[in-house]
Nucleic acid binder design. Structure first.
Length: 723
DNA sequence: GAGCACTGC
């Protein structure tokens, strides 16, 4: 009886006070009716039975590791369990981090309903709020705040000890983004200073061991780094097979160390229907052919309703399979249900993505061909059957050459299980794996955490700006190779974000506040110097570079011709940067109907709206940091301004420069690597003296994306300027 | 001649 009753009482007290001096009485009683109605369904959640265990565990310990599959109700219920706890005090706040904006907002809305309190900033009495980029909704009475991981890290810049919170709940830890790993490291460090801070780590996978070891290991901060530090892999996974270059730089070692925190673990069953798994008898090379075969087998055998979700690698495979399925479906006799084939990937326009949420018409089966987006970010309703090709595209950063590669890889077992689970959300289901059971068993247990796959410069600057002196000693769940950390430190020095001693510089502090990579942040700083004076323009360009591609993708020859006419006035022969600037200036100048303007120019309206949001945010931040020397833009961007703009990018991306070779290819100055201009660039197919680019990505070959012309003379000047 | 998925006071 404890918690719900208490929460109810305190909500009543609050409600009385509000209703006496506000006209919202009917609204208040509606909120309470809704709350009481929801209480019944909350009591059905698997986690409801465990609330005493969970409360006791965190009362007696500093850290709670809570594992529970989807459907256990942990994200909504756990924060409510703690509100009335003595350690939580009043007005002690609870932060709950989420990987995605939509999740943060919808969970806040749901929990507010369950508590019978208005949401966020809608009332000063609201107890539940959220904070995501471009949208903060909290009140003076907020007790539970859902926020994205990035927002919690941003809050740490203002208040490194997170003093307003008594408890931080980190949700979806199994996703292992860099931000999650950083937050776990900061919280672990923080608990040595703040004995009153409780930490809850929630994960969908049952494996609590590595998290427990992480929190149990003593901090290595303030001890000198020496060559005897222990690689962490060796104690968990047998012999660590790493060469000297890739060896982890330190680990957390539970041998001969005492716990720095008291840790409790708890596992909660999910609410999931059973899913039958079937494998291939022998492996297949052609996953498109195998998918096609399996889709029709399921479709012809199984009754409707019951939609089918097919996990594939990417847009290209999805579109070719869609064509095949639609062709074959024409040959189905009327004895069988109809088929509705729907693609799903991030680059798909919003309206097309929405189609998956509409129920299939009678006697029709939806067949959704999806990327990994349906594994975590989008929940497709109505699915009873999953077909899993066992593959996904994965990004991997090669830090020696500064190259991102995007390659098809085998998924992990946990990822395969996640995909399978999508068939059992609403009823018993079936999962067809297009690989053998032996192949499944030989998959890696978990996916490689992002921190081992990405450029670490932003993560390192994040640490430095929050007071981490020796970043090589920062506690990370899976420490990356020392070489990767040192590369990041070196890059930050070259950008001027760190001084020669490795301490953060005033420029570094400014960069760290911006929602940008350090390199793009440095471009902003460069644009603000009095000699350069093109901050307004550079903000527009950087805004484009930090959102999805603004030009709509085009499939057909006819579409390409149409697009080149529609976009003619926007294209700039100097390259993509000035083309983006022209697009933003034209869009911003459009006063009447921006959506129509975007359609007319075959530009993504969704992307342009994000550009405008980022532009506004960056402008406000630059103003606050007093970076503006002049307020005025140079609307008729003259040649001298154009030169200064591109030179700003040289300051942030000095190693991303390549010169033309006689054979028509480009080779980088830094590593003599061959790069090709990406077909999405306005410079595609053109030959110029030298180019600068913002992204270097290997897919079928090494491509430069977001490319502009540079003159060799500018390069010499830029190098002089840096010396 | 091409685009896995997220996120940021």
């Amino acid at each position: 009886m404890g918690l719900p009753h208490t929460v109810e009482t305190s909500a009543n007290v609050k409600r009385k006070r509000v209703s006496e001096d506000s006209p919202g009485r009917t609204h208040q009683s509606q909120l309470q009716q809704r709350r009481i109605k929801l209480l019944d369904s909350r009591k059905q959640l698997p986690i409801w039975q465990r609330q005493k265990d969970i409360r006791d565990a965190l009362r007696d310990n500093d850290v709670l590791i809570l594992s529970g599959e989807t459907g256990s109700g942990k994200s909504t219920q756990v924060p409510q369990f703690f509100l009335d706890q003595p350690w939580c005090g009043f007005p002690g706040k609870i932060a709950v981090t989420q990987p995605r904006r939509v999740a943060a907002i919808s969970l806040a809305r749901r929990v507010a309903e369950e508590m019978g309190t208005p949401l966020g900033s809608s009332s000063p009495a609201s107890k539940v709020g959220y904070s995501v980029r471009f949208d903060e909704s909290t009140s003076p009475s907020t007790r539970i705040k859902f926020l994205t991981e990035g927002m919690l890290l941003q809050e740490m810049l203002r208040d490194a000890s997170l003093s307003q919170y008594k408890c931080v709940i980190v949700d979806e830890v199994h996703e292992r983004s860099v931000n999650i790993d950083l937050i776990l490291g900061f919280l672990k460090q923080l608990q040595t200073r703040r004995k009153d801070l409780k930490v809850v780590v929630m994960s969908a996978t049952a494996d609590a061991d590595s998290l427990q070891r992480f929190f149990a290991a003593q901090l290595l901060e303030n001890t000198r780094h020496d060559s005897k530090s222990v690689p962490n892999d060796s104690q968990t996974d047998g012999e660590a097979e790493v060469d000297a270059d890739d060896a982890p730089w330190h680990g957390f070692d539970d041998e001969d160390q005492q716990s720095s925190s008291n840790i409790a673990t708890c596992h909660v069953e999910g609410r999931q229907y059973p899913v039958i798994t079937r494998y291939l008898d022998s492996p297949t090379e052609d996953t498109i052919e195998a998918s096609l075969h399996r889709i029709f087998q399921i479709h012809c055998k199984e009754p409707t309703p019951g939609d089918l979700l097919v996990f594939m690698t990417g847009q290209e495979a999805i579109q070719s399979l869609q064509k095949l399925v639609e062709e074959y479906a024409l040959g189905l006799t009327t004895d069988y249900p109809k088929m509705l084939v729907l693609p799903l990937f991030a680059a798909l326009p919003q309206a097309a993505q929405q189609l998956i949420f509409q129920p299939a018409p009678r006697n029709t089966r939806k067949v959704i061909l999806t990327t990994n987006i349906a594994e975590t970010s989008v929940t497709v309703p109505g699915v009873r059957f999953v077909v899993d090709t066992g593959k996904a595209k994965v990004k991997q950063f090669r830090n020696r050459i500064g190259l991102d590669s995007l390659l098809v890889k085998q998924i992990s077992r946990s990822s395969a299980d996640q995909r399978k689970g999508r068939a059992g959300r609403e009823a018993a289901g079936q999962c067809y794996r297009l690989y053998t059971e032996e192949a499944y068993k030989s998959l890696d247990k978990d996916s490689t955490p992002e921190v081992l796959r990405c450029d670490l410069s932003q993560a390192v600057l994040t640490m430095k700006a929050r007071g981490v002196g020796d970043v090589l000693r920062f506690p990370l769940l899976t420490p990356p190779p020392k070489e990767a950390m040192e590369k990041a430190l070196l890059q930050l020095c070259e950008l001027g974000a760190l001084d020669e001693h490795g301490n953060i510089s005033p420029i570094g502090r400014k960069i760290a506040r911006l929602p940008l990579t350090p390199a793009l942040g440095r471009v902003i700083i460069e644009a603000a110097t009095p000699e350069t004076d093109c901050l307004v323009e550079v903000i527009d360009i950087v805004a484009c570079l930090s959102v999805e591609h603004i030009f709509l993708a085009i499939d057909t020859e006819e579409g390409r011709e149409k697009a080149s006419v529609a976009r003619r006035q926007l294209l700039r022969r100097q390259g993509d940067h000035l083309t983006y600037l022209a697009a933003v200036q034209a869009y911003a100048a459009e006063q009447s109907d921006r959506r129509r303007w975007a359609d007319d120019h075959m530009i993504s309206h969704r992307a342009m709206q994000s550009v405008m949001d980022v532009r506004q945010q960056l402008t406000a931040q630059c103003r606050q940091a007093k970076l503006f020397t002049t307020q005025e833009a140079h609307p008729a961007t003259d040649e001298a301004t154009q030169e200064r703009i591109v030179k700003c990018f040289l300051r942030g991306f000095s190693s991303n420069v390549a010169r033309a070779c006689p054979d028509g290819s480009y080779k980088t100055f830094a590593g003599n690597q061959t790069v090709a201009i990406h077909p999405s660039s306005v410079l595609f197919g053109r030959k110029v003296e030298a180019i600068i680019y913002n992204q270097f990505v290997y897919t079928n070959k090494a491509y430069a994306r977001d490319v502009s012309v540079v003159q060799l003379r500018w390069l010499e000047e830029a190098l002089d300027g840096m010396a």
